[in-house]
Design a protein around this nucleic acid. Structure first.
Length: 214
DNA sequence: ATCCCGAGGG
DNA sequence: CCCTCTGGAT
């Protein structure tokens, strides 16, 4: 595998990508954090449906903590796992108040110590809200990395490290977002559509999938 | 039936 | 590594 395969792959995606969706709607650290917590095992459309009212009611950690799980619940009842998420978001807001001066910490360990926040969510916040050099590896990016030869047979953490190391600096910010969209709409788990993949020339997986329908 | 831009726990 | 949580869309 050529050393710059990942860079070529990412450049191809960057050159042919639509406007970013979900998390770029929330550049503010707190609303971004909450939105990403809510999106676990939920569609981005479902999350984007309920967040406007939620953030209108509680745009800050202080307001969210005051709202509490009982106040948050009704706003998010249409997305899966809402009960646990309501508790997590309330506790998370309270923890921001008590331990971080009402601010979202720009620190991985502190982020991952928040209820409902794992490595993937922390990476999204660090990248999108704070511009840190991180990559958020979700199921799509994990599959894509293992399938394409970018990081075959690697763990999610190894895929993440590879991407952070090989991604051109100017693409680091939000590159994970293009990868996610690519994994969702093109390099899909089933019936991937290699014939419309802009990075197919950098990928050896296309030989394994059917030709385009006619 | 299966998946969703996961996290927490055993 | 496995399992569970859990509503909605396809």
């Amino acid at each position: 595998m050529p050393r710059d395969q990942a860079a070529a792959f990412l450049r191809a995606l960057a050159g042919a990508n639509p406007a970013p969706e979900t998390e770029l709607l929330y550049r503010d650290p707190f609303t971004l954090l909450v939105a990403v917590v809510l999106s676990a095992q939920a569609t981005d459309a479902a999350v984007n449906r309920c967040t406007p009212a939620l953030f209108a009611a509680a745009p800050t950690p202080a307001a969210m903590a005051a709202l509490g799980a009982e106040g948050i619940g009704p706003h998010i009842r249409r997305i899966g796992l809402w009960q646990g998420k309501a508790r997590n978001v309330a506790a998370l807001a309270q923890q921001l108040m008590e331990q971080h001066g009402g601010e979202v910490p720009r620190d991985r360990a502190a982020l991952e110590a928040l209820p409902g926040v794992g490595r993937k969510t922390a990476n999204v916040v660090l990248n999108v809200a704070f511009g840190e050099a991180t990559m958020a590896v979700d199921t799509h990016i994990f599959r894509l990395g293992n399938r394409t030869g970018l990081a075959p047979g690697k763990t999610p953490r190894e895929v993440e490290d590879m991407l952070v190391r090989r991604c051109p600096p100017e693409l680091l910010r939000d590159a994970h977002h293009w990868l996610i969209l690519h994994g969702r709409y093109v390099c899909k788990a089933r019936a991937p559509e290699c014939w419309r993949c802009v990075a197919a020339t950098q990928c050896n997986y296309r030989d394994k999938v059917p030709a385009p329908p006619r």
